[in-house]
Amino acid sequence: MSANKRPLSPFMIGPYYKPQMTSVLSITHRATGAGLVVGTLLLVYWLAAAALGPEAYKHAQAVIGSMLGQLFLFLWTWALFYHMANGIRHLFWDAGYGFEMKDAEKSGRWVVSSSIILTVLCWLIAGS
C-alpha cells in the first residue's frame, strides 16, 4: 500500500490550500465580532469617564482623541459596518438565496465595498 501524499485537512495553509473569498470573509466576520467587543469596552470607558466627572472625561477624550485612538475608532467603525453588511448577507443565506459560487463572490465583494464606503461616509459626515 503506497502512502497518500495528499493533506489530511483543508486548513493546512501553504502549497495545499488556497484561501477562498468565502473563507477569508468568514474569518474576518469572526475577527470583526471580537473587535466590536473591544471597541464596545472603549465606549463603556468613555461613558463611565463622562459620568465620573470633568477630569476623567478630559483624560478619556485625550486617549480617544489621540492618533492611535482615532485609528482604533476608524477601524471599529469599519468593523461595525462590515459585521452589519455580512450579517445582512447571512440573512439572505438563511432565506436560501446566494449559495451559488458566483452569487457568493458577488455578495462578498458587496460586503467589502459597502463596509468601506459606509465607513468613509460616516467619518466624512461626522467630521463636518
Rank of each mutant, 00 (worst) to 15 (best):
T28W: 04
Y16T: 06
S26K: 10
R30H: 13
S23W: 12
W46V: 13
R30F: 15
Y45R: 10
P15R: 15
V37R: 04
L36K: 11
Y17H: 09
G39D: 06
L36Q: 07
Y16H: 12
V44Q: 05
L42K: 06
G14P: 06
Q20Y: 02
F11W: 06
S9C: 04
S23M: 12
Q20K: 13
S23T: 14
L43K: 07
V37G: 01
P19W: 08
Y17E: 05
T40H: 09
L41Y: 13
R30K: 12
T32C: 10
Y17Q: 07
R30E: 07
P19N: 07
L47I: 14
L25P: 00
L36V: 10
V37Y: 06
Y16W: 15
V37K: 02
A48V: 14
Y16G: 02
G39V: 08
V38H: 09
T22E: 14
Y16V: 04
I13K: 00
I27K: 15
G35V: 05
V44T: 11
P19Y: 09
G35I: 08
A34V: 13
L47S: 10
L42R: 11
A34G: 06
S9W: 01
I13Q: 00
F11L: 05
Q20F: 01
V44R: 01
L42A: 14
T32H: 01
A34E: 05
L41G: 13
L42S: 11
G35W: 02
I27G: 14
L36T: 10
T22L: 09
A31M: 14
A31I: 13
G33K: 03
I27C: 14
F11R: 01
L25N: 06
T40I: 06
T40N: 09
G33M: 05
V44K: 04
G33D: 02
T32L: 00
G14N: 07
T28C: 03
K18S: 07
L43H: 07
R30D: 10
P19L: 11
T32R: 00
S26F: 09
Y45V: 04
T22G: 03
Y17P: 00
F11C: 04
L42W: 14
G35S: 06
S26M: 11
Y45M: 12
P15M: 14
L36D: 02
V24D: 09
H29F: 10
S23I: 08
A48W: 11
L41F: 15
V24K: 04
Y16D: 10
I27L: 15
P15T: 10
T22W: 08
I13M: 05
T40V: 08
L36G: 09
P19T: 03
G35E: 01
S9I: 01
S23F: 12
L47W: 14
S9Q: 04
H29C: 00
K18M: 09
L43E: 12
Y17M: 03
V44N: 04
M21R: 15
M21K: 13
